[in-house]
């Protein structure tokens, strides 16, 4: 029993930390209805900014804050490519993501920065007397809860309603006097700020930043969002947000399980893709099963 609880801790921490990224993906993919691939670049951007600042001796909280700003700038770039130059959502994200690969290398100065004995937000929290394990869990859970709360508040403001309507029915909200270029850029900036924050936490949690750590971020984010919807539903904004982080935990749990069962780490991306297909197809599958049962 104790071993099982111990087994849960790591996926839980990862689920919470990557859950912040999934919240960002939820914002672009579900709320704005914008398939934004920038995230594959903004997650490592957050990690890169944080790691290089910490190594340079800056305060880790300041490093985290700057990572968030960096993510917001990346999202703004994608938004401007789309709204000002009329580049498609997909391509605008790919362009920023590609550019970020070079930018992240520049920020880091090399392809990998270890943070082994560096001062991180987790160490600082542990020094407050929370203990090493407790500190990671409490900090991750506290941040995720705070973000869910803030995002919920935002999505219920005048501005938040306008952002949601932009993703739902652009023509309608335009006819109500909202500049949808602005709401799109704002939504993408927020989304990528969340993703970069997640990247910053990841780097400090795993004690290194790597230029390649962003590969597959979008698919992991989608997996979390979709699994969350299937498992926990999305009947209200509140519930949908909690479901995203819940989905993220479940996704990390599945990964931990299949690794424990002996799957090669290199096969993980394949497994993730299959998981997303399964989650996406689940409504149809359910319907077919029901039809099959009643039809025969």
């Amino acid at each position: 029993m104790l071993a099982f609880v111990g087994f849960l801790v790591s996926p839980l921490e990862q689920g919470l930390i990557y859950g912040m990224m999934a919240l960002g993906v939820y914002l672009s993919f579900r709320v704005l209805n914008y398939a934004d691939l920038t995230v594959d670049g903004s997650l490592p951007l957050g990690a890169a900014i944080t790691a290089s600042m910490i190594v340079a001796g800056h305060d880790p909280w300041l490093a985290t804050l700057l990572a968030v700003l960096g993510g917001a700038v990346a999202g703004t770039a994608t938004g401007l490519l789309h709204t000002q130059l009329r580049i498609t959502p997909l391509l605008s994200g790919i362009l920023t993501m590609t550019a970020l690969y070079s930018i992240n290398l520049r920020v880091m100065g090399r392809s990998n920065i270890p943070l082994l004995r560096a001062d991180t937000i987790f160490n600082q929290a542990a020094a407050l007397g929370l203990g090493e394990r407790g500190a990671s869990l409490i900090l991750a859970a506290g941040t995720a809860a705070l973000l869910i709360f803030l995002l919920y508040l935002f999505l219920e403001t005048e501005l938040g309603l306008a952002v949601r309507a932009t993703g739902d029915n652009e023509q309608m909200i335009k006819s109500l006097g909202v500049n949808t270029d602005t709401t799109k850029v704002l939504g993408l900036a927020l989304s990528n700020a969340l993703v970069a924050l997640s990247g910053s936490y990841v780097a400090q949690y795993q004690h290194f930043a790597d230029v390649g750590m962003g590969i597959g971020t979008i698919i992991a984010g989608l997996a979390s969002v979709i699994i969350g919807e299937v498992l926990f539903g999305s009947s209200s904004v509140w519930r949908a947000l909690v479901a995203v982080v819940g989905g993220s935990f479940f996704y990390r749990l599945v990964i931990a399980l299949v690794l424990w069962m002996g799957l090669q780490p290199t096969d993980l991306k394949l497994m993730t893709a299959l998981l997303v297909v399964l989650a996406l197809a689940s409504p149809q599958l359910k319907q077919r099963l029901r039809l099959g049962a009643s039809g025969s």
Binding site: T157, E158, L159, L161, R164, A165, D168, N169, L176, V178
Partner: peptide, 22 residues
């Protein structure tokens, strides 16, 4: 906006042409 509630739709309409704030 189909995915939003009746009151949310009305609230957006009530602010037609106004600056949206936090």
């Amino acid at each position: 906006a189909a995915s939003m509630t009746i009151e949310e739709n009305l609230a957006m309409a009530l602010r037609r042409g106004e600056k949206r704030r936090l």
